[in-house]
């Protein structure tokens, strides 16, 4: 056993997991609060990356690209919630899955029609180039910074969810949707805001990931499935679940890579199956919510 490699992979699992957490957060917020399983989540992530790319190409500012990606998706989320999703709150899960699945196809193919299938470049920001020597590991600066970005994002999200009225409603929605309705809260507007926020989180994740992965129309496909794995492992609809689930998923991929790299992805699914069989509500899930 190569110990330095083990430490390196453990650390890498952490940053890999942090990115997964970022991506999964939007999905879990929307599902938790609205009960909508958003299959367009991967497409939102992709659109975010493209919005960031366009903004970067115009301004050469990474910060503006991030803002553009998040803002674009807030807008997209709001338009889609008003135009489509709100008709689905009272319909079965399957219908929501289908509508958002179709929406995902439309977004992906619209981007492909506009930009082509060739991958676009959104480079690492100047403050993130190069690599840092961590002693046991030579690691890309940007990824270490991403760790910080994710941490800050999570703190902000935490404050929104646990320290604001909106967050209270969202969390109440996760616990008991009926209750929120009964309390006479302006559900309509709250749902709009939550869907917008969840979409924005996806777009934000898209831009942050763009310098690392390839920006192509199909980039969200894998992300969607991985996000599901993350939130199911952690517990659907749970803030802490998405966090822990993402980190666990990152470690699974990284540690499997030491032993049998080709198996790294399938191990995620195996882990999800095991968690579900042994602890159905996920590690942090609310029992009974299905």
């Amino acid at each position: 056993m190569n110990w330095s490699l083990l430490w390196a992979q453990l650390f890498n699992g952490l940053t890999l997991g942090a990115l997964l957490v970022l991506v999964a957060m939007g999905l879990t917020i929307i599902f938790g609060a609205l009960g909508v399983i958003n299959f367009a989540h991967g497409a939102f992530y992709m659109v975010g990356a493209y919005a960031g790319y366009v903004a970067y190409a115009a301004t050469h500012s990474f910060v503006l690209a991030v803002i553009a990606g998040a803002a674009a998706l807030l807008l997209v989320g709001i338009v889609i919630e008003r135009g489509l999703i709100r008709y689905y709150y009272r319909r079965p899960h399957e219908d929501q899955i289908l509508a958002t699945f179709g929406l995902g196809i439309i977004l992906v193919e619209a981007v492909r029609a506009w930009f082509g299938g060739i991958s676009q470049r959104l480079p690492v920001p100047t403050w993130g180039t190069g690599a840092v020597n961590l002693g046991f590991l030579y690691y890309p600066t940007y990824r270490i910074e991403v760790l910080g970005i994710v941490a800050v994002t999570l703190v902000v999200l935490y404050l929104v969810l646990y320290r604001t009225r909106l967050g209270l409603i969202v969390r109440a929605g996760i616990e008991d949707q009926l209750m929120v309705n009964v309390l006479g809260i302006n559900v309509n507007r709250t749902f709009l805001v939550v869907f917008g926020l969840g979409s924005m989180a996806a777009g934000f994740a898209g831009v942050i990931n763009a310098p690392i992965v390839t920006v192509v129309p199909d980039m969200g496909e894998l992300v969607l499935v991985q996000s599901f794995v993350v939130i199911v492992i952690g517990g659907v609809g749970s803030f802490w679940g998405a966090l822990i689930g993402g980190l666990i998923a990152g470690e699974i991929i990284s540690l499997t890579a030491i032993v049998q790299p080709a198996y790294s992805e399938v191990m995620l699914f195996a882990a999800m199956a095991i968690v579900l069989i042994l602890r159905p509500q996920g590690l942090f899930g609310v029992q009974g919510r299905q």
Binding site: V225, F269, A270, A273, L276
Partner: peptide, 14 residues
């Protein structure tokens, strides 16, 4: 429910 759906998805991918 959704957990059943996810389990079948996991087995499908395996």
């Amino acid at each position: 429910g959704i957990y059943f759906a996810m389990l079948t998805l996991a087995f499908g991918e395996m």
